[in-house]
Amino acid sequence: MQSNNPVFRNNDGFSKTSYNAYGNATYAGNGAAHSGYGQTDPSQWSVGTPGTAAPTQAGAPMTIDSVVQKGAMSIGLVILAAAVTWLVTPDVTENVDLGPLSAAIVVGGGAAFLLSLVNSFKRVVSPALVLLFAIAEGVALGGFSKLIDGYYGGGLVVQAVIGTFAAFAGTLAAYRFFNIRVGNKFRTFVVAAMFGMVGLSLMELVLGLFGSSFGLFGFGGLGIVTAVAGLALGVFMLILDFDMVENGIANRLPEAESWRAAFAITVSLVWIYTNLLRLLAILQNN
């Protein structure tokens, strides 16, 4: 089954690719059906040439450890860049110039958005671009988090960070223990909803430049609706990520593809954090 996720679609190994004559899914590499098995004509069955090893992909395969390592590097850079941005920008006080914070949010967010598009549609994954995305995203999150903390306080940033990692752990536990299986309709829905949210946010940004917007991503009534919807969508995105990583490992993709998985998981965690932080701010304000 071909993935609809643009991040994983660039490598067929992240999805089930074919079925044998008995209806069983086959995978690339060591998951592929053995020569001769599954053929309908018994006269064509064979057991292979004695002494010949099964074909394998060159290089070390993608594993859970490699995904965890790359993911830790990516998420760690986001946190580090956010912390540095927090420290070097001025505190939000009365009559303070918010120019540096605004610049961090706009420049970091713009760079992260462009890099996310490149990483999503790039055929060959680039570790350097994934790490650059993490840094740019961290700068934007650092500015945004400090702005929310300055206006709303109450330790919302710490709560959002804890809540994000709790959502990750809870989603992973549910995926494993409840043996969640991802279908094509679910993939299509999640990706369509994600691009829909991005499109709405860009529309709001353009309207805001002309002094007119619907407040979809603000801190009012509509804002709480989009924050809750965005939070739920972030959890669905994580489920999609876990499924694709599981398929990638089963298909024995090259270890370099761990960077693609790390990028996707980082995007999902950032998505959850920003919506959770905004939701907490709205609830604090009310």
Rank of each mutant, 00 (worst) to 15 (best):
G208D: 09
A21Q: 13
L80T: 11
D91P: 00
D241H: 08
T188Q: 10
Y273G: 14
F219K: 11
L231R: 07
F178E: 00
L279H: 07
A33K: 10
W271N: 09
V245I: 05
I265K: 05
S3C: 03
A28L: 14
T93S: 08
P127H: 05
S116Y: 06
V68I: 06
F219M: 05
G142L: 05
L147I: 08
G150Y: 11
D65I: 12
G150F: 05
M244S: 15
A281F: 07
D12Q: 06
E257Q: 08
P42E: 01
K146N: 01
V107T: 15
L216C: 03
L216M: 12
I239S: 04
R176N: 02
L200P: 01
I135V: 11
E137I: 00
L101G: 07
V78C: 14
V267L: 13
A169V: 03
F195M: 10
N5C: 06
V267E: 08
W259A: 03
F168I: 00
Y27V: 06
S126D: 13
A167L: 13
A169I: 05
A104K: 05
S212M: 12
K16F: 06
S66I: 08
G234S: 11
N275I: 04
L115G: 07
D12I: 00
I64F: 04
L117Q: 12
A134T: 11
S258L: 11
D65E: 08
G108W: 06
A134W: 11
A140K: 00
W259R: 05
L222C: 03
V267I: 15
L231M: 14
F178N: 01
R252M: 04
K185L: 12
S66M: 15
T93A: 13
T164V: 13
A193L: 12
S120F: 06
A256M: 13
A32T: 04
M203H: 01
P254Y: 09
T56V: 10
W45V: 10
L238H: 08
L87A: 10
K146P: 02
P55N: 14
R123D: 06
G76Y: 15
F168K: 02
F263R: 06
V84P: 07
L277S: 11
I180A: 03
G230Y: 15
G150H: 12
L156M: 13
G59K: 12
V228N: 13
V124E: 12
L202W: 13
I135T: 11
N95P: 01
H34P: 00
P61R: 06
S43D: 04
N24C: 02
G108N: 09
V67L: 00
M62K: 05
S102H: 15
L238Q: 08
T89Y: 03
G142Q: 08
Y27S: 03
V158C: 04
Q69C: 09
L80S: 07
A227I: 07
L216I: 09
T52M: 07
Y273K: 14
V107D: 09
M1D: 05
Q44V: 00
M203Q: 03
W271Y: 13
V107H: 11
P90G: 09
A136F: 10
M203V: 11
F177G: 02
E246G: 02
M1T: 08
V198S: 04
P55M: 02
F144Y: 10
F189L: 14
A262E: 14
I239V: 12
S102F: 15
I64Y: 04
A128G: 03
G51Q: 10
A140S: 13
W259S: 03
